[in-house]
Amino acid sequence: MAAAGRAIVQAVRLHSPLIKFPNRLSDPRPNVQEVLKMGVAAAQQSSGTHSSPMTSAPSPLIRLPGTSDTAATIRDLPQRYRRRIVAPEEMEYIQRGGPE
């Protein structure tokens, strides 16, 4: 019966965060069209220097008919299809590992 009166003590380990959110507020947002053009130009340049069939340049991009993917189309999406914005407090809560 002496063991029943003892308090149960649990050791709490320090939290090591598994998720890290990068600070992207200071990074400039890339323009998708410019990035695609640079990728195609780099692929064309590299195809001239390498003669191996394994490193051949990919076929040129083909535009599919329909609505293009622009900021305007994303802005016009209904709220239920938009990505939810994560608040800084929620990011800190996630990094901290939940309630303390």
Results as ranks from 00 to 15, higher is better:
residue 63 R to P: 11
residue 93 Y to G: 00
residue 73 T to Q: 13
residue 50 H to D: 14
residue 54 M to L: 11
residue 14 L to H: 06
residue 11 A to C: 07
residue 15 H to E: 10
residue 92 E to W: 12
residue 3 A to S: 03
residue 28 P to T: 13
residue 33 Q to G: 09
residue 53 P to M: 04
residue 77 L to R: 04
residue 38 M to H: 04
residue 39 G to Q: 10
residue 26 S to N: 15
residue 38 M to D: 02
residue 57 A to W: 11
residue 16 S to C: 13
residue 36 L to P: 12
residue 24 R to C: 15
residue 38 M to A: 04
residue 30 P to D: 01
residue 74 I to P: 00
residue 60 P to S: 13
residue 39 G to P: 06
residue 68 S to P: 09
residue 100 E to S: 06
residue 57 A to I: 02
residue 99 P to N: 04
residue 1 M to T: 00
residue 37 K to N: 13
residue 83 R to K: 14
residue 4 A to T: 11
residue 92 E to C: 07
residue 15 H to W: 14
residue 53 P to N: 05
residue 4 A to Q: 10
residue 46 S to H: 10
residue 13 R to K: 10
residue 65 P to V: 01
residue 73 T to W: 13
residue 87 A to V: 01
residue 90 E to M: 02
residue 100 E to C: 03
residue 79 Q to M: 15
residue 41 A to W: 06
residue 61 L to H: 11
residue 40 V to F: 06
residue 44 Q to I: 09
residue 78 P to W: 08
residue 82 R to L: 09
residue 71 A to V: 13
residue 24 R to F: 07
residue 40 V to L: 02
residue 89 E to F: 04
residue 62 I to D: 01
residue 42 A to S: 15
residue 12 V to Q: 13
residue 83 R to C: 09
residue 28 P to E: 11
residue 57 A to M: 07
residue 31 N to Y: 11
residue 5 G to H: 13
residue 6 R to C: 05
residue 74 I to R: 07
residue 35 V to H: 06
residue 81 Y to H: 14
residue 27 D to L: 04
residue 60 P to H: 15
residue 86 V to T: 05
residue 20 K to R: 15
residue 73 T to S: 15
residue 87 A to C: 04
residue 48 G to I: 12
residue 66 G to R: 00
residue 26 S to Y: 01
residue 49 T to P: 05
residue 13 R to L: 03
residue 49 T to R: 09
residue 89 E to H: 03
residue 63 R to V: 10
residue 33 Q to V: 08
residue 44 Q to E: 14
residue 94 I to Y: 10
residue 31 N to Q: 07
residue 97 G to P: 00
residue 31 N to D: 15
residue 43 A to Y: 07
residue 13 R to I: 03
residue 32 V to L: 02
residue 59 S to G: 05
residue 36 L to A: 10
residue 67 T to S: 02
residue 8 I to V: 11
residue 57 A to V: 07
residue 88 P to W: 12
residue 53 P to Q: 01
residue 41 A to C: 05
residue 9 V to G: 13
residue 29 R to G: 00
residue 5 G to A: 14
residue 32 V to P: 01
residue 78 P to Y: 08
residue 72 A to S: 09
residue 18 L to D: 12
residue 37 K to E: 12
residue 53 P to G: 09
residue 51 S to N: 06
residue 59 S to A: 09
residue 81 Y to M: 06
residue 26 S to P: 03
residue 62 I to P: 06
residue 3 A to W: 07
residue 91 M to Q: 09
residue 95 Q to C: 08
residue 76 D to R: 03
residue 65 P to S: 06
residue 62 I to T: 11
residue 79 Q to D: 15
residue 22 P to S: 05
residue 80 R to C: 08
residue 70 T to V: 11
residue 19 I to G: 08
residue 80 R to M: 08
residue 16 S to K: 15
residue 56 S to G: 11
residue 68 S to M: 00
residue 50 H to A: 12
residue 25 L to N: 12
residue 75 R to M: 05
residue 32 V to R: 05
residue 64 L to E: 05
residue 68 S to L: 03
residue 31 N to L: 08
residue 11 A to R: 01
residue 85 I to T: 10
residue 20 K to D: 03
residue 9 V to D: 13
residue 80 R to H: 10
residue 74 I to T: 00
residue 6 R to N: 11
residue 69 D to E: 08
residue 12 V to E: 07
residue 29 R to W: 00
residue 31 N to W: 11
residue 1 M to A: 02
residue 70 T to Q: 04
residue 50 H to L: 11
residue 16 S to P: 11
residue 94 I to T: 09
residue 65 P to H: 08
residue 72 A to T: 04
residue 26 S to D: 15
residue 66 G to A: 09
residue 68 S to N: 03
residue 90 E to W: 05
residue 94 I to V: 15
residue 4 A to K: 12
